[in-house]
Design a protein around this nucleic acid. Structure first.
Lengths: 149, 149
DNA sequence: TATAGAATGCAACTTTGTTGCAAAATACTT
DNA sequence: AAGTATTTTGCAACAAAGTTGCATTCTATA
């Protein structure tokens, strides 16, 4: 019990730090949603968060996610089933101010989870003349490790 | 006028051929939606099609797009703003039966258009052990050629 | 601790997508 | 070419997803 409290305090401290770094006021809904992201192993849909933070209003969750997106705390992942998925940005992504999330995302067709393949980086490509690149995303569909077993 | 008719006949023949190839019955809504795709230079959202084919019911458009997806006539493009965009598959994509759409897609942040960069193919990547790949998508955001000028 | 400013919850609304079913259109048979 | 089986369409009703305005509550700060 003491151990559990200490864990929660740790996470509480972490969420407050993230909010402070982004100069956002510290509210319980924001902390709760950040905690959800920190303990999630996969990218989350709005609906997932709604279920895990059901004490908060749907509108609040929409607005909080939008705020986090604006501040670069989270990012969206383009998915082939065109559901919106959100994931935490990596540390240096947040601190560096602008968004650069250079790893490949994996969408499991069986369990439906969206995973960040942190170790697989997106290869460089050459665009036709006249195009300017700002962001690049790579999404792979298939069966994930867990579902293959 | 004669010239215009001949053009429309040409496109009519083309749309009917596509439908026949996929063993779909030929209906005016399907032909209309195919014509829209054939004359579009960019990928289209459901909403775009609804505006361009307003004589048809919303439900019909949903069902037609789903049918075209099932037959591999069109494909969806994952976008970072998480709107669903549809584009015609290339010829060999249709005829070969299974879908393989190996080019990079470009999303212009300025004009909002989604373009198929047919000449830029998706580079190969290596997934971690245990993952199986079925489909791969690469989406680039930035400013397109037209908007840069 | 008082207060200005920000965030939240609620209600009402718009947009987007789905389903069942009767009517209409298409394909097929003869 | 006409009749019939099958498919497709449109309508209605609904469900889900997302948005907006405003009054209330909470947070930061002096």
């Amino acid at each position: 019990m003491i151990f559990l409290n200490s864990l929660q305090n740790k996470m509480g401290a972490q969420t407050e730090l993230i909010l402070k770094t982004s100069s956002l006021s510290i509210t319980s809904s924001r902390k709760k949603i950040l905690e959800i992201f920190l303990s999630a192993s996969t990218a989350l849909a709005h609906q997932d968060i709604e279920k895990l933070a059901e004490q908060y209003d749907r509108v609040t969750i929409y607005r909080t996610l939008q705020t986090f997106l604006d501040r670069g705390i989270i990012h969206t992942i383009p998915t082939t089933d065109n559901t919106i998925k959100y994931a935490l940005c990596s540390d240096d992504c947040i601190t560096s101010g602008h968004h650069h999330d250079n790893h490949v995302h994996f969408l499991c067709d069986q369990c439906g989870r969206t995973l960040c393949l942190d170790d697989v980086s997106i290869p460089a490509i050459t665009l036709p003349k006249g195009y300017s690149m700002k962001e690049i995303n790579m999404v792979v569909n298939g069966i994930c490790k867990t579902c293959m077993e």
